[in-house]
Design a protein around this nucleic acid. Structure first.
Length: 490
RNA sequence: GCCGCGUUCGUCUAGGGGUUUAGGACGCCGCCCUUUCACGGCGGUAACACGGGUUCAAAUCCCGUACGCGGUACCA
């Protein structure tokens, strides 16, 4: 199994799903998961991309068994380092009459394409190749002269015109293509680098890849690959073309459409947004695949056991960030306090806050069921700093003329208790209510406003307990002072 | 245009001739729990693209149409 991304940009979420499925099949069959870098397009090469791919896989925990950094017997794992092998195969194809040299210029090819009545109706293929300048149409002496003169040329696949090519796909079954509908695919570009089609077939064979698992966008070129395997007398690996991941409105999940829907596209953006790798993997696994039960929560190991390419669907799937978020909530709830605290820490730090370890234990438990993403911890600043302002609506609704006094009286009572813990605070609070004959609804929202500036939040007494005597006193006084006897109607 | 793939609740999907009043999950709505907001529990909303055929029987098989997606590069 191999994951063979092209380092022309950052690894995106669709690429990660492809990697995941490859990984799952590799693990469950005891095979190797190979990372191969397909860097044959020198004009679009992005130097940082390879490191990004590696870091992304590392983050989610599906690391390759063989890769440029971890080579095994089938290296090198960068196509740019395998040129000699591609040239060798290209020559072999040419001498066997399965490929030919083409000397046409870009203008000549453009002219060919425009010769049809509708755009795209004329291709460089079995029906037009004899009209072009190539080693099939030109006299041999002319071809020799051009080669000797270092005339720029490409190598094209000589696609037969009289047969069907059948692709056996695990996801879709048998698909047949009429060969005369295929173009004479360029195998080697004029800069000497192979195209994807040649390099991919050669490498998959050389690296003994048993399963080619990739996106559906490759389906139309698969018959050309099958032809190459046949011409080289190599066996065709098992093929599986995965349904494409679409945007929530149906189109392609491009950077643009994703941004519009608030969906991160690049893998590490998920990390930076506070998504858990387990959740991302779990969601991605289910995006196109369905287990043979109604179960939805899977760890990576469980996925390895349950996954099957046969249960991968064939229709495009729309990305749903809300469902991913739900998976993320599930993951957070299953974490130990300590692990959860570790997850939240970077986001607290990023907000410029600090928090000591003991307090963190409690805070984490108060927040666990209230956050969807690790970074949501920043929606609860009350644990880290005094309120900066008071929510107007909450104050209007809950703060009465006597609220300030009530708060100060209550504070006096709470502070008088010998210990400052949640049960103690609560019982002091209860007796205060009884003595003053007021209901919870009268004072609790007021306390919340004083603590956080808002009328809702986590359990009140544990919150008071973590905040401590001093902070509580300061916030109560400050609220009484600032909001004072402010009239609800003013 | 041509080639290929696809089409079950808004979304991810189960089901692949009778087991189906079409099941699950997310979302949404309601109720319960509750000091608030969440969590949780319970309940509800909502789908077989359309038209022909085959068959005693079709969401399920076949054909067509529509629509969507992909490909049609010296990109991958």
């Amino acid at each position: 199994m191999r994951f063979a991304p092209s380092p022309t940009g950052l690894l995106h979420i669709g690429g990660l799903r492809t990697a995941l499925y490859n990984y799952l099949v590799a693990r469950q069959s005891g095979g190797a998961f190979v990372l191969r870098i397909e860097d044959t397009d020198r004009s679009r090469f992005v130097p940082e991309a390879e490191a990004y791919i590696r870091e992304s896989l590392q983050w989610v925990g599906i690391e390759p068994d063989e890769s440029p950094e971890d080579p095994a017997e089938h290296g090198p794992y960068r196509q740019s380092e395998r040129s000699a092998r591609y040239s060798e195969i290209a020559s072999r194809l040419v001498s066997a009459g399965h490929a030919y040299l083409a000397f046409d210029t870009a203008d000549e090819i453009a002219a060919l394409r425009e010769s049809g009545d509708t755009p795209g109706s004329v291709r460089y293929d079995s029906s037009t190749r004899m009209r072009m300048r190539n080693s099939l149409s030109l006299p041999p002496e002319e071809v020799q002269r051009l080669v000797a003169a270092d005339s720029p040329h490409v190598v094209r696949l000589k696609v037969p015109d009289d047969r069907e090519v059948v692709v056996d796909d695990i996801v879709r079954g048998q698909i047949s293509f009429a060969a005369d509908q295929l173009d004479d695919q360029i195998l080697v570009k004029s800069d000497g680098y192979p195209t994807y089609h040649l390099a991919n077939v050669v490498d998959d064979h050389d690296m003994q890849i048993s399963h080619v698992i990739r996106g559906e966008e490759w389906l139309p070129s698969t018959p050309k690959h099958v032809l190459l395997y046949e011409m080289l007398d190599w066996s065709v690996p098992a093929m599986a073309h995965l349904p494409l991941i679409l945007s929530p409105t149906g189109g392609k999940l491009s950077k643009r459409s994703a941004d519009k829907h608030g969906i991160p596209v690049f893998v590490l953006d998920y990390r930076d947004s506070g998504f858990e790798p387990e959740a991302v993997l779990n969601y991605l696994a289910l995006l196109g695949w369905h287990p043979d039960s109604d179960r939805e929560r899977f760890s990576l190991d469980e996925l390895v056991r349950a996954f099957s390419l046969r249960r991968v669907g064939s229709a495009g799937v729309q990305f749903d960030i809300e469902k991913l978020t739900w998976f993320n909530e599930q993951v957070l709830r299953e974490l130990s306090s300590q692990r959860l605290a570790e997850k939240l820490a970077p986001h607290i730090e990023a907000a410029g806050w600090t928090c000591d370890r003991d307090e963190m234990e409690t805070i984490v438990e108060l927040l666990r069921d209230r956050i969807s993403l690790a970074r949501d911890v920043t929606s609860y600043p009350e644990f880290f700093r005094d309120p900066e302002d008071y929510d107007e609506k909450a104050v209007r609704k809950r703060w009465k003329d006597d609220s300030g006094d009530l708060l100060l009286n209550l504070l006096e009572r709470l502070v008088a208790g010998e210990s400052w813990d949640a049960p103690q605070l609560e019982s002091a609070f209860e007796s205060f209510l009884a003595e003053n004959d007021i209901g919870k609804g009268r004072i609790m929202p007021v306390m919340r406003i004083a603590l956080s500036g808002r009328a809702s939040g986590p359990d009140l007494f544990p919150t008071l307990a973590v905040l401590g005597r001093e902070t509580t006193a300061r916030r109560f006084r400050s609220a009484a002072d600032q909001l004072g006897a402010e009239d609800a109607s003013s």
